[in-house]
Amino acid sequence: MDLGPYLLFASLEGLVHAAVLSLIALGLSLVFGVMRIVNVAHGEFFMLGAILAWWVSSFVLGNPALGFLLALLVAPIIAGIIAMFSDWLILKHLKYDPEATIIATIGILYIIQQAALMTFGPDARPVEQPFNVRLDLYWFGFSAYKFFVIFASIILLLSVWLVMAKTKFGLLLRATQLDSETAQAFGIPISTVYSLVFGAGAAIAAVGAVLIVPIQQAHYLMGGEPLLLAFIVVIIGGLGSLRGTVAAAVLIGMSDGIISVFFSPTLAKILATLLVVFVLLIRPNGLFGTAKV
């Protein structure tokens, strides 16, 4: 294959990666933006989404499309409920203290990870693609499902933006993000808002997992790498900035995809980490972040 088509292929792979990464990072950014906590367990909600997708779709073997749709509905709901339960059981009692919640979410990470291992076992679990169509792009064939992943991610990102920018619930979230104490003084029940946001962050990551799991495989240790990349994305984009998160996810996802195809995935991670250092030196609040006074 010539360089041009090869670059196009790598870019498409990168776009798929960027699409899913933007969903994972969006959940992380939403949680940090509104609750001001760093959720170290976020990658485990992604893992949970993937394993639950395998588990749910295994009930409808022989009909991958139905299994996928069922997983897309059930996995994010269960991941969201588990996240809300963690919030109710642990984070709320720590009064969302930024330092204490880091330690607590590390604990949640291990509990979820080990619970997944004990419940579903150590094996990697494949999930069949809901449809198996290969599009001929003249120079090479490309899975139609991967285009669907990009499309579905864009739809979800736009939906979250619409909710945040145009609905009353979004207004409550933005007000809580800006000043939670004053928000309470105007009737916003911030503990309910926090619980919903923590659940929504986990559910969005789980959607990303359901979308990617027919391309990768579900495994109880799969949460670590997306968590690292999601942190890189939200730091580069600006903690709490949805616009920055999407922009950085495209940047990191695309470069990760292209460098992985041309060179190696390890080099891609090294360069992404160096990029974080570079951005933090030039713009300590990230590309789209604003300094909090």
């Binding site: 207004l171 007000a175 800006l178 004053t182």
Partner: peptide, 12 residues
């Protein structure tokens, strides 16, 4: 809520 508009502040 400094990043919200005047109207959004009133909505709150």
């Amino acid at each position: 809520f400094s990043e919200l508009t005047v109207e959004e502040n009133l909505e709150i």
